[in-house]
């Protein structure tokens, strides 16, 4: 083996450049994840892609718990706080009475013949409904 095949020894300037490069490469490692961490992250992502339902389920309970607390509080509050007078019961006969009243008022204000008997008849039916609902309230 001749000395021509061997590299000549590094000059001090070349050694200084190499040392600088080595320092730069070491600094790069500070800004990148390690190979192990990258591998673990990739495995996590692949695992989530393969099991989307499991991921969804694993996150849902915490959301349900946090949203259900104010909801439950609102329901309890609404139950405890009185809401003023009760609304009148809705009856199909109430609609008929409204229409009969409308016909009566229209006739009255326009001077047409008055259908008072019809109004009385429909009001009697509505009364019957009210009495029936009083019985049902028991």
């Amino acid at each position: 083996m001749s000395d021509e095949l061997l590299d000549p020894p590094l000059t001090p300037a070349e050694q200084a450049e190499l040392a600088e490069l080595e320092a730069l490469l070491e600094a790069k490692n500070h800004f990148e994840l390690s190979a192990g961490a990258r591998k673990q992250g990739l495995a996590d992502l692949l695992g989530q892609l393969e099991r989307p339902k499991v991921r969804k389920l694993s996150r849902r309970p915490s959301a349900v718990v946090w949203w259900s607390l104010p909801l439950a509080a609102a329901v309890i509050l609404a139950w405890l706080v009185p809401l003023g007078p009760e609304r009148a019961p809705v009856s199909p006969r109430a609609s008929a009475l409204m229409e009969a009243q409308n016909a009566h008022l229209t006739a009255r204000l326009t001077g047409a013949p008055l259908p008072r008997e019809e109004l009385d008849r429909v009001q009697a039916e509505y009364r019957h409904d009210l009495l029936a609902s009083l019985e049902a309230d028991r």
């Binding site: 007078p85 009364r127 009210l130 609902s133 009083l134």
Partner: peptide, 16 residues
């Protein structure tokens, strides 16, 4: 006697 929602219209109907 009963719920106001029922007795109130019954009383108005009586007055009418």
């Amino acid at each position: 006697q009963g719920k106001t929602a029922t007795t109130l219209p019954l009383r108005q109907d009586l007055a009418d």
